[in-house]
């Protein structure tokens, strides 16, 4: 007779349902793609939820500020809506890790990369250099200090700044997955596992294409996926057809098969990337109709992140005069 604690999300889900109707659909994005100029594309964006931010933008070249403003607005709105802020915090870890990469590289290369900070994380971006120098600050998750020192250590050994990215990417995945597990967000944990799997599959394909060895792939693999790392490493020495066969009974069958076929037809890795994003969108869409629980909220945040990504693709394409067809091909399908 217990009242499921999921009804705690009843208010948030109601509000999300309305917000979902305001997401940019493909027809709106299509209009932006068809726009004659970047100015016009921005004007079309101004007819949507983005009106306020667009009116404050100086021009189309300011699109990054518009999208950054929107995503910060969404995160802070979600924090207000949800009974537990921890859910939103999980989405903010990636910004902290990004800022940590920037801060560490700046520290080691003695340059100022402050303009690369994205101030959307849990820790204010300007504090990140202090975290990297192991200065104990209030409100900084204790794990971050361990991440920073592990990345610094790896850099000291190899003197290759790319190692910082690899080490921190791995930490980000395992930390986010551990937090999702700890707070009992079963769906998010599943989503993250699929995300890791797909990233690993992409690494496998890229490594094989570049003709690099096991060690290179092993350095790029992310933890937390359902496909064992040994399987991925073994697949590296196989033919493309054998790799496709290997995944034939996994949920990633279509992604792997179509992605590799596109690659073999010399259409590059874009298709594989698009397919894996599509897989994640589909996974997220599958739970959006639940009336209770955090899933619809998760789907909305993911949908918003995807929308912002699409807007960036369109605006960047428009500003650089990329043909409409090419922009369209790069767009990711929506979550709503």
């Amino acid at each position: 007779m217990s009242i499921s604690h999921d009804s705690r999300y009843a208010y948030a889900v109601g509000r999300i349902r309305v917000l979902e109707t305001r997401l940019l659909d493909m027809s709106k994005l299509g209009r932006m793609v068809e726009a004659k100029s970047a100015d016009e594309a921005l004007r079309i964006l101004g007819e949507t939820e983005y009106a306020d931010l667009v009116s404050r933008a100086a021009g189309p070249q300011d699109y990054a500020a518009v999208t950054a403003g929107e995503i910060t607005r969404v995160y802070s709105l979600m924090k207000k809506l949800l009974p537990d802020e921890a859910l939103v915090d999980l989405f903010l870890i990636k910004y902290d890790i990004h800022n940590m990469k920037v801060a560490l590289k700046a520290q080691f290369q003695g340059q100022n990369f402050e303009h690369l900070f994205i101030d959307a994380g849990l820790v204010p971006a300007k504090l990140m250099p202090y975290v990297c120098q192991q200065e104990k600050l209030q409100g900084v998750p204790p794990e971050y200090y361990a991440f920073a020192s592990a990345a610094a250590l790896a850099y000291e050994e190899s003197k290759d700044p790319k190692v910082i990215d690899l080490v921190l990417d791995r930490m980000q995945y395992s930390h986010t997955a551990a937090m999702a597990e700890k707070h009992g967000y079963a769906f998010l944990a599943r989503f993250l596992a699929s995300q890791a799997d797909l990233a690993n599959i992409r690494s496998l394909v890229r490594t094989k294409r570049l003709g690099r060895g096991r060690d290179y792939l092993a350095g790029n693999l992310l933890p937390g996926g359902t496909v064992p790392q040994a399987v991925l490493l073994e697949a590296l020495t196989e033919e493309w057809t054998a790799i496709i066969a290997r995944f034939s009974s996994s949920p990633y069958q279509a992604v792997v098969e179509q992605g590799i076929n596109a690659l073999l037809e010399s259409r590059g890795l874009t298709m594989l990337e698009k397919l894996s994003d599509g897989f994640l969108a589909e996974l997220s869409r599958s739970v959006r109709f639940q009336a209770f629980g955090p899933e619809p909220v998760l789907n909305y945040i993911l949908a918003k992140e995807n929308e912002v990504r699409n807007i960036r693709i369109v605006m960047l394409g428009k500003l650089n005069g990329v043909p409409n067809e090419e922009i369209r091909e790069r767009l990711r399908e929506g979550y709503a």
Binding site: A10, Y11, A12, G14, R15, V18, L19
Partner: peptide, 12 residues
């Protein structure tokens, strides 16, 4: 429960 959901919807 129904009230929380309708409050969420109506606030938008």
């Amino acid at each position: 429960i129904a009230g929380q959901t309708s409050a969420g919807i109506m606030s938008e």
